[in-house]
Deep mutational scan, measured.
Amino acid sequence: KELVSALYDYQEKSPREVTMKKGDILTLLNSTNKDWWKVEVNGRQGFVPAAYVKKL
């Protein structure tokens, strides 16, 4: 599985998104959309802005 690192804090703005803190390591589930990537963090799945994470 592919991992990404959070470059910035992000506070979810809808139920489809997830909150992350800078430095968090997230499991990348889907990166086909260039703007929003689906990740899993702390057992929750949702979307984060692609520009806020980088692949490890």
Rank of each mutant, 00 (worst) to 15 (best):
E2M: 14
L3R: 10
L3F: 14
V4K: 02
V4R: 05
V4T: 05
S5Y: 15
S5M: 15
S5W: 15
S5E: 15
A6D: 01
A6H: 01
A6V: 10
A6E: 01
A6C: 13
L7K: 09
L7S: 05
L7P: 01
L7F: 04
Y8C: 15
Y8K: 12
Y8D: 07
D9R: 03
Y10N: 01
Y10S: 01
Y10A: 00
Q11H: 14
Q11I: 15
K13C: 13
S14F: 07
S14L: 08
P15Y: 10
P15S: 13
R16N: 14
T19R: 06
T19W: 04
T19S: 15
M20D: 00
K22E: 08
K22H: 07
K22R: 12
K22F: 07
K22P: 03
G23Q: 03
G23F: 05
G23R: 03
D24N: 06
D24C: 07
L26P: 01
L26S: 02
L26V: 08
L28G: 00
L29F: 03
L29H: 05
L29Q: 03
L29E: 03
L29Y: 04
N30Q: 11
N30A: 09
N30M: 08
N30F: 07
S31T: 12
S31P: 06
S31C: 14
T32H: 12
T32A: 12
T32Y: 10
K34I: 10
K34F: 08
D35F: 15
W36G: 00
W36R: 03
W36D: 02
W36Y: 08
W36S: 02
W37P: 01
W37R: 01
W37E: 01
K38P: 02
K38F: 15
V39K: 00
V39I: 08
V39Y: 00
E40C: 11
E40I: 07
E40P: 00
V41M: 13
N42Y: 08
N42T: 05
G43P: 01
G43M: 05
G43T: 05
R44P: 00
Q45N: 07
Q45M: 10
Q45C: 12
G46P: 00
F47N: 04
F47E: 04
V48C: 02
V48G: 01
V48R: 00
P49A: 02
P49T: 01
A50V: 06
A50S: 13
A51K: 14
Y52N: 08
Y52T: 10
Y52C: 15
V53N: 00
K54F: 09
K54P: 03
K54H: 11
K55F: 12
K55H: 12
L56W: 10
